[in-house]
Amino acid sequence: MNKEKDVIICRCEDVTLEEIRELIKRGYTTVDEIKRITRAGMGPCQGRTCRDLIIREIARLTGKRVEEIPMPTFRPPIKPIKLGVLAESEDD
């Protein structure tokens, strides 16, 4: 049994360690590329849990230092907000 299959890296989108390793091996060695292909980090948690894990995996498999791996951007809103709540914000 392949244990990597059961290692969930991104909880929001159910992306496994196996998928991430596969992409790194294919030459996708930035968090952004892996995110764009797998959606890891695009879920409601904004990649808080998986970003570090992916960076560490890239560093481990490529021999790069963490600081050499570009950080993805941190987009607002940091916490999901209901559209209806936003719509009621006073316009100023």
């Binding site: 969930i8 909880r11 929001c12 989108e13 159910d14 992306v15 409601p44 948690c45």
Partner: peptide, 22 residues
């Protein structure tokens, strides 16, 4: 149950930041 693989999910971070407990 998770979106893709239907895995069980529960409590995890306790601070509303991880999306596990929807």
């Amino acid at each position: 149950r998770s979106i893709g693989l239907g895995r069980p999910r529960g409590f995890f971070c306790a601070v509303g930041k991880c999306s596990s407990c929807f």
